[in-house]
Design a protein around this nucleic acid. Structure first.
Lengths: 241, 241
DNA sequence: CAGAGCATACCAACCAGTTTGTATGCACCC
DNA sequence: GGGTGCATACAAACTGGTTGGTATGCTCTG
């Protein structure tokens, strides 16, 4: 039963041969995709291997356990998203409210990508494991903290620049936005309606605008779906100031 | 190896003997608890049986599959919660904004119950299965719709009674509140900080208040934790009107 | 005494992780 | 520059425990 006298190896493992970094990356990215679609327990190591065009041997060569690759997948996912935010935010010298606005635009746009599923790896893993796996929970918490700190920083700077009519705690508001974002993805997935995310983000914007003292312009609920095409409320505020 | 010549049956099956309804209920309630703690795939049928003080025979006598009891658990959970809302809301003749306010109070209080874990069965099941199990997804959607319709109804009536300065779509706002609630539970669980839910609800209230034209009173972020003890913003609005 | 309400033993599929073996490239010496 | 030694990078069969589900029979009740 030796390796089939190996003249023709039927499936050519994704046209990749001895490419350490590529294999590892393929495994991690497959994990991200599969877990986002089916959850942690709903994804098997074998599925990951098949999707990555690798074998169990390769898998356990790079990762000591399923939990390990999960952690790697979370880090990979967050690093990727962070890069996206970096692009969305634009110049650091820009007004923090404009930057936040662009970030929300980016988020709204991210659920509109055609083939893309509306699910955040972080939220899914946290929901499934936070109650039972302390280590994974801690990793998720750290990642959520990262996003919140970023937004809280923007809000804090905005508070300094413009002196808002209402006092507020930037961290609290940032956590509220983060929670809303996660909940929106959950609800949108359940309803199979990505537009729900956009709609919720409109209200999030309106709330932040309200904090900075601008009257929310009359919301036209028919048009509210076209978020990313309209100038954000925050931008609107700044332009008339 | 017959049933131990059964003179003394070591564990007396939860001091319950041939009580059909009680057995069924125990199984369902055990499912609710376990799934809320460990998720769907993280909970085994055996665990449910043990927790309910029943055996597999009993389990499959009442439910054809794990999926079936999950559905029963969701319905049970939602019916229970709905009763809670009924109590919280109070008289139907009351002002809808006051009723909404009391509902938010109830939600904030529900995560403060000492031994209680911060997790919504609905949110957990939806997050884990919405992407892979269409039937369960549909059930979750229906339940979420129920809550949203309730809140949207309150908001719509509030719009009729008081004519708010800002126009808004009650359903959109209700979905936003629902999403925020789900996301808050997710974030609070991940951070192991139930107070995050209360904090987020404060901002939710403030947003709704804002819609009805009242200036949010200066938020004191140190004190914002004591939500349920302070008269809600909506009530505050109505008292000065 | 019939049938609802269980209890117990059992099973087949599944799944994370292991073992064992092989192919490939690189370093180093001759 | 070609052979030798060895580490990395896989491949694939296997294992042992787990899990949802079943088969069968006992037992209490109406």
């Amino acid at each position: 039963m030796h390796p089939k006298d190996g003249n023709n190896d039927k499936r050519r493992r994704a046209s990749r041969r001895r490419a350490p970094e590529a294999t590892r990356l393929a495994l991690v990215e497959a994990t991200v995709d599969l877990v986002r679609a089916s959850g942690v327990h709903g994804t098997t190591v074998d599925q990951i291997c098949t999707a990555a065009g690798a074998t169990k041997g390769a898998f356990f060569h790079y990762f000591r356990s399923k939990e390990d690759i999960l952690e790697a997948a979370i880090l990979h996912w967050c690093r990727e998203r962070a890069e996206g935010y970096g692009r969305d935010l634009g110049e650091e010298t820009d007004d923090p409210l404009v930057r936040l606005d662009r970030m929300l635009d980016g988020l709204a746009a991210s659920v509109r990508v055609p083939g893309e599923k509306t699910a955040c790896l972080l939220g899914m893993v946290a929901q499934e494991l936070a109650g039972s796996n302390h280590r994974v929970r801690a990793v998720c918490e750290q990642m959520l903290d990262g996003w919140t700190d970023l937004v809280a920083g923007l809000l804090a700077e905005a508070k300094r620049r413009h002196s808002p009519g209402t006092d507020f705690n930037p961290h609290e508001v940032a956590w509220m936005l983060n929670s809303l974002w996660q909940g929106s993805l959950l609800a949108a997935k359940t309803r199979q309606d990505p537009e729900l995310v956009a709609s919720n983000l409109v209200h999030a914007r309106a709330y932040v605008s309200g904090l900075f003292g601008v009257d929310s312009p009359k919301q036209n609920s028919r048009k509210s779906r076209e978020v990313s095409s309209t100038p954000g409320l925050l931008r609107h505020y700044l332009e008339n100031h």
